[in-house]
């Protein structure tokens, strides 16, 4: 399979009050077309920065970061499911989900039909005309996921999308997300804090070093698909999360020591 996302010796430096900060250095990564890749690392390791560069919200200061454009130039490259939902409070569920299509000039009837289809898929049919303030956190994040998927991007970028949810809602949404992904097999880059979540969702888990962020290890997750939450009870799952944690532990310690 060809590489959809390529990062070669990518570097990102910020100017802060304390001087220059290096968020990413010598960052190399390839994500295959149709792959679900999870990025884990200690807080502040630059994993969100990498995602923001892919989303076009930030620029690399060195090296190369690119998404291989597909055959259809009209298909958007990458859309983000943001950490704190970022669904527009002033738009109904329907108009939030249709947002990307509206920005691209898709006609009203077509974009609303597409939005309705995605709203059905994330089980919000009853709430089409609700405003986000009337929804729970889990429902808002479903809207955010539907908004990104309805726009049919070549790559789906998810920045700790379930981080703010309680454990039960989170588990339900993880399963729903996998079901949605099985239908389309889009390329996904998924940034998370949770090792369980990374192993449960991903084809590969990339462990990053504490800052400046580079790739420390890549762990292949060969659990069979389609997966459901019962996979978390298997010894294979435990072995994989153990392996991720082994790679991560020193980095988390290092990050904590630097912050202290």
């Amino acid at each position: 399979m060809s590489a959809k996302i390529v990062a070669r010796s990518a570097e990102k430096r910020f100017q802060t009050r304390a001087g220059w900060m290096t968020a990413l250095r010598d960052f190399d990564l390839e994500v295959a077309e149709g792959e679900f890749l999870c990025l884990v690392g200690p807080s502040g390791c630059g994993k969100s920065t990498f995602l923001r560069i892919l989303a076009g919200l930030d620029h690399a200061t060195g090296g190369e970061v690119r998404i291989d454009p597909g055959p259809d130039p009209r298909q958007p490259l990458a859309n983000v499911v943001f950490q704190e939902y970022a669904v527009f409070p002033w738009k109904t569920v329907l108009h939030n989900v249709a947002f990307g299509l509206e920005m691209r000039g898709v006609g009203r009837r077509e974009r609303e039909a597409t939005a309705h289809r995605w709203i059905d898929k994330v089980a919000l049919t009853r709430f089409v005309d609700y405003y986000p303030a009337q929804l729970s956190g889990g429902m808002k994040q479903r809207v955010s996921i539907a908004r990104a998927l309805a726009n049919d991007p070549q790559v789906l970028l998810m920045d700790e999308p379930l981080g703010a949810l309680d454990a039960q809602t989170r588990a339900v949404l993880q399963e729903e997300l996998l079901q949605l992904w099985e239908e389309s097999r889009k390329t996904v880059l998924y940034v998370t804090h949770s090792i369980d979540e990374a192993v449960f969702l991903g084809d590969r888990v990339v462990v990053m070093t504490a800052h400046p962020g580079t790739v420390k290890t890549v762990i292949d997750v060969d659990l069979p698909r389609p997966r459901d939450l019962s996979v978390m009870a298997t010894p294979e799952f435990a072995a994989l999360t153990g392996a991720v944690w082994d790679a991560l532990r020193d980095e988390v310690r290092r990050a904590m020591a630097e912050q202290a």
Binding site: G56, L57, A78, V80, A86, F88, W90, K91, E102, N151
Partner: peptide, 27 residues
């Protein structure tokens, strides 16, 4: 800022940004 970034990520033009994000956000 997260709303502005969402608008940018979904490819809003300057006018669309104003009409769909900035105006309702400031109201």
């Amino acid at each position: 800022k997260v709303y502005l970034e969402a608008g940018r990520n979904f490819g809003a033009s300057r006018w669309q940004m104003f009409r769909h994000v900035i105006l309702p956000g400031a109201l």
